[in-house]
Design a protein around this nucleic acid. Sequence first.
DNA 1: GACTGTTACTTGTTTTTTGCAAGTGACATG
DNA 2: CATGTCACTTGCAAAAAACAAGTAACAGTC
Lengths: 125, 125
Amino acid sequence: MPTAKKKLTPLRSICPIAGTLDLIGDRWTLLVIRDLFRGLKRYGEFAASPEGIPTNILAERLVRLEANGIIASEPYQKNPTRYAYALTPKGLSLKTVLGALGQWGARHVSGTKIPAEMAALFRET
Amino acid sequence: MPTAKKKLTPLRSICPIAGTLDLIGDRWTLLVIRDLFRGLKRYGEFAASPEGIPTNILAERLVRLEANGIIASEPYQKNPTRYAYALTPKGLSLKTVLGALGQWGARHVSGTKIPAEMAALFRET
DNA sequence: GACTGTTACTTGTTTTTTGCAAGTGACATG
DNA sequence: CATGTCACTTGCAAAAAACAAGTAACAGTC
């Protein structure tokens, strides 16, 4: 796993919406989670997504998501050890959030389009 | 209405999730929208929320939300003209997003608690 | 076995955004 | 007319993001 730096993130309030945003409410984190739902697993795959996340940001977000128990990493090779990332149950339960964001965007943000590969995320459960 | 500065925000991709995040995916915007769902209407009320949004950020977000058709402002007094803000239908349709974020937070972010005043947001529709 | 390429990061610097404090204009109240 | 309030605006320091390079450990080619 990448270098883990300790960083406290005290919650801004007891509001559960604010609490969620404190964990994943930045410009990039939810896009990494979206990619995990799409089946991507490796650093290079995330980096290749069309939004073009800066690599240092990606590395930091992966560390943070794992520290918060939203993703887990497992080595898939040695020398050098490389890790594949996957959503934990906690991360998987963000599906409703991604679904709501995606449906709203498809309806209200012009220029967006639901890719076929992502249709599963948008089906009602 | 506050001073409107033109600012282009080209979408990072055609993904509807990314598109939504480009509009409202920052540290503060969704908290303002939450406050509107809670019934708050005025600048001072938003500023008094427990998270303590910086006032310059609040002013800028109100302008942006109105420019994007998510909120609308109406004068409630003259000299000086003061505006009350309300969600448009487009803004109201973010309820599912807020609901999903809140439910996830209530379940997975320790230290959060659903205030009674906010319970309506969390009921399934 | 030196050379090229790939993967997964790390490091350094610039630019942008945020956060904080203080200031301003137009009143309303005492 | 002095003080207070409300809704902002402005200035500046601090933090985060963006961009560009660099690095380590191989694997494959010549």
